[in-house]
Amino acid sequence: MSSRIELSELPGWANENHDIAFEAWRAVCSAIRDPVAADLCFRARSVGEIMPGDGRIFLEREFQAERVGAEGVLTGYFAPVYAARRAQDSEFSTPVRPRPSDLTLAPDGRASRSSDGAPYPDRARIEALQESAPLAWMRPEEHFFLQIQGSGVLVFEDGQRIKALYAAHNGLPFVGIANPMRERGLLARDNTSGDSIRAWLAANRGPVADELMRLNPRFVFFRLAPDDGRPPAGAAGAPLPAGRAIAIDPAFHRYGDLLWLDGEAPMLAGAFPRYRRLVTALDTGGAIKGEVRADLYIGQGDVAGVEAGRIRHTLMMWRLVPRP
């Protein structure tokens, strides 16, 4: 068994807003799969309204912490709000595609066209196909980022807001384009934030930007739903609390795990110097692979997008475990 420490020994624990962290956790802790921790969730929800300091008392009384792996990487994501159109024009030229009827799931978990397990087409081949019933039309670079984030809100020309929710993907691996842009000298090494990449793609809209985006073969399909104003739900089925939820690799963590993040040494210009906070594992993503790997959900809209796009920090993680 890994050696455990008291929560008070975690780096930065004293500066955490424990009550807010506690409230965020107990609002989503129904996602917990571990029976012992699920019982703690029930007890936390039975407490009712808390007084200042009660959150810290509960957490320190019921949990200890154990280190997870060595060093890893912290990134960020958000729920974008993008303009969309119901008809195609020269600016809004990319269709938002629904899940195709011929996209099935093969026994190995990869998306395939038929029962023989043939891989589904990559991004370039899908984009070459005419979409007969698009859900909406978007700017190419914003559609690309909607696919990376996995969901968002579309605002149409009449002001109507509709949620675009993840429906499926083509089963191919996610490949980021930040490294190729650095290697080609298109952006400075410390300036490959999400906002900088999106701005470059918009300024170079057309064949040049299309070629870069097609370096990522993964293609995401969507479904539309009314915008109820609530946060998006993660893979665990629970709404994502801004700043308090992470996407993880489910091969190493369980949904509902309570984790302490210590992210420092940012690689990108303009980033916050450090992220130390208590979060819940509620989501996953195609680029989130490994034990010490977390994607922090920042929130919805442009401000959240700017912050999320600048997060690439060295990460240390601890898992909170119920006391024996």
Rank of each mutant, 00 (worst) to 15 (best):
S2C: 00
S2L: 01
I5K: 05
L7M: 10
S8I: 06
E9Y: 01
A14K: 13
E16K: 05
A27G: 13
D34F: 02
A44N: 11
E49D: 11
I50L: 12
M51R: 15
G55C: 10
I57P: 02
R61E: 14
R61P: 01
E71A: 08
L74A: 03
F78H: 14
P80N: 09
R86I: 00
A87I: 04
S90V: 10
S93I: 00
S101F: 09
T104R: 15
A106G: 10
A106C: 14
P107G: 02
R110Y: 04
S112L: 00
S114Q: 04
S115N: 03
P119W: 09
Y120W: 06
P121Q: 10
R139H: 11
P140M: 03
L146M: 13
L154F: 05
Q160T: 14
R161I: 01
K163V: 09
L165A: 15
Y166R: 10
N170L: 01
L172Y: 08
L172F: 05
V175K: 13
G176L: 03
E183F: 01
G185W: 09
R189K: 14
T192P: 04
R198N: 11
A199N: 11
N204F: 01
A209H: 06
P217K: 06
F221T: 05
F222R: 13
R223K: 15
P226R: 12
D227N: 12
R230S: 12
P231R: 05
P232M: 08
P232K: 07
A236L: 01
P239N: 09
R244F: 12
P250I: 03
G256R: 09
L261S: 08
G263M: 01
A265L: 05
L268T: 08
G270I: 02
R274C: 04
R277D: 14
L278I: 13
V279E: 06
T280I: 10
T284D: 15
G286T: 11
I288K: 10
G290H: 05
E291N: 05
V292W: 07
D295C: 02
L296Y: 06
V303I: 01
G305H: 07
G305I: 00
V306S: 06
G309N: 05
L320C: 07
R323G: 13
